[in-house]
């Protein structure tokens, strides 16, 4: 059973998700992980689907006039660090919009082996907001990393907070 990564992009309207997922169900594809959001009035959806159809056949079944659909065969990959080994943090950046905020901040994280596992950015008026889930290797000097982030934030005229994830485990 193959695994395919499917992306769907199109103008937001009621029924887009129903149409895509209906097509997937009709061809026996099973949706595993997926995420969907609206970006500038467009629906953006990414799905990991498994099934008997290869990605080429899947693409034919999903094609629609008002949607941009891609499908690629992929291999399931293990997370970059074993479960429980990484340290979870949440990064918040907010400040005036300008080019290069994401690249500057992500470069600091990448230099220490930090992995961004989820990210949302929003522009609201002049305010640019970035929220990222970050996983750090255990050996990272978090205090030094935070100093670097603070320096980058100052250079971007932005406020940066970097704090451990607070899981509500019950």
């Amino acid at each position: 059973m193959g695994l395919s990564a499917v992306t769907v992009l199109g103008v937001d309207r009621p029924g887009v998700i129903a149409a895509v997922t209906g097509s997937l169900a009709d061809c026996g594809a099973n949706i595993q992980d997926s995420t969907m959001t609206l970006l500038g009035g467009h629906v953006a959806m990414m799905l990991l689907v498994s099934g008997e159809l290869d990605s080429t056949e899947l693409l034919k079944r999903l094609s629609a006039s008002d949607l941009v659909v891609t499908a690629s065969a992929i291999e399931a990959r293990r997370h970059f660090c074993d479960e429980g080994d990484g340290l979870g943090y949440v990064l918040t950046v907010h400040g005036p919009d300008r080019p290069g905020i994401v690249s500057a901040v992500s470069a600091v994280l990448a230099a220490d082996g930090g992995n961004i596992t989820g990210m949302s950015t929003r522009l609201s008026g002049r305010l640019y907001v970035l929220i990222a889930d970050v996983e750090l290797p255990k050996e990272v000097d978090v205090a030094a990393l935070m100093r670097q982030l603070a320096a980058v934030g100052a250079s971007l005229d932005s406020e940066i907070t970097f704090r451990p994830v607070e899981p509500d485990l019950i």
């Binding site: 609206l38 949440v90 918040t92 907010h94 989820g118 990210m119 949302s120 929003r122 907001v129 929220i131 990222a132 889930d133 406020e159 907070t161 994830v165 607070e166």
Partner: peptide
């Protein structure tokens, strides 16, 4: 204290339009 609610967002998926 100079903090916005954005500074307390628990994760990337917790920010909403």
């Amino acid at each position: 204290d100079g903090l916005l609610f954005l500074d307390r967002v628990p994760g990337a998926l917790s920010l909403h339009r």
